[in-house]
Computed example of a mutant assay.
Amino acid sequence: MHDTIEDSINVLGEPLKPCAFDPVTGFYRNGCCDTGSEDRGAHTVCVRVTEEFLAFSSARGNDLSTPRPEFGFQGLRPGDRWCLCAERWKEAWIAGVAPKVILASTHRATLRHVPIEALLANAMPIPARNT
């Protein structure tokens, strides 16, 4: 059975932008928070991780800081961008420790789990465009 990948559209209704390539992120390890039928965890929220969030996640049984070379995972450090599971982000949001969200890189499938208002209130500032 082949995975069905959803259209790469972000929560703003625009084409999904890459989240991170160093470290390479995403369920498909393509640098984007793409999702599909095999992505049961909905790794759709692009964030900039913080020390506080990494400690929170580790306390919940998902240690994202420790390198796991057997899986090609170098471990995350504060400031790294990463595609988080939507429910884990929501859990952190409720606890008051949610990392900032990069809206342009957050897949619209996130909206099945998290209200858009929560994402907007926790969004990274959008850089001004040069005119």
Rank of each mutant, 00 (worst) to 15 (best):
I9Q: 07
I9A: 03
N10R: 03
N10L: 03
N10M: 00
L12N: 11
L12C: 12
L12K: 12
G13K: 02
G13P: 03
E14W: 01
L16Y: 05
L16R: 04
L16I: 08
K17W: 02
K17D: 07
K17S: 14
P18F: 11
C19Q: 04
F21M: 10
F21N: 14
F21A: 00
D22R: 05
D22Q: 14
D22Y: 07
D22A: 08
D22F: 09
P23T: 01
V24C: 11
V24W: 01
G26Y: 05
G26D: 13
F27K: 01
F27E: 01
Y28A: 07
R29E: 15
R29M: 10
R29T: 08
N30V: 10
G31H: 06
C32G: 09
C33E: 10
D34Q: 09
D34R: 06
T35W: 07
T35E: 04
T35P: 09
T35Q: 06
T35C: 07
G36D: 11
G36P: 13
G36Q: 08
G36Y: 12
S37V: 11
S37T: 15
S37C: 07
D39I: 01
D39C: 02
D39F: 03
D39P: 00
R40W: 12
R40M: 14
R40Y: 12
R40I: 13
G41R: 10
A42L: 15
H43D: 13
H43Y: 14
H43K: 11
T44C: 15
V45M: 14
V45I: 15
V47T: 14
V47G: 10
V47H: 08
V47N: 12
R48M: 13
E51S: 13
E52N: 08
E52L: 06
L54C: 11
L54T: 10
L54Y: 11
L54N: 07
A55D: 15
A55E: 14
A55N: 13
A55P: 00
A55V: 13
F56C: 07
F56P: 06
F56Y: 13
A59Q: 06
R60V: 03
G61W: 00
G61V: 03
D63C: 02
D63F: 02
S65C: 02
S65T: 09
T66S: 11
T66N: 05
T66V: 08
P67L: 05
P67W: 05
R68C: 07
R68I: 10
R68P: 01
P69A: 04
F71W: 13
F71R: 11
G72T: 05
G72V: 00
G72L: 02
F73C: 05
F73T: 01
Q74I: 12
Q74P: 12
G75T: 08
G75E: 05
L76M: 09
L76F: 13
L76H: 14
L76C: 12
P78N: 02
P78C: 06
G79H: 03
D80V: 00
D80W: 02
D80H: 09
R81K: 04
R81D: 06
C83N: 03
L84E: 09
L84K: 00
L84A: 08
C85E: 08
A86V: 06
A86M: 02
R88H: 13
W89E: 07
W89Y: 07
K90E: 08
K90L: 14
K90M: 08
E91H: 04
A92F: 07
A92Y: 01
W93E: 15
W93M: 04
W93S: 12
I94L: 10
A95G: 00
A95Y: 01
A95W: 03
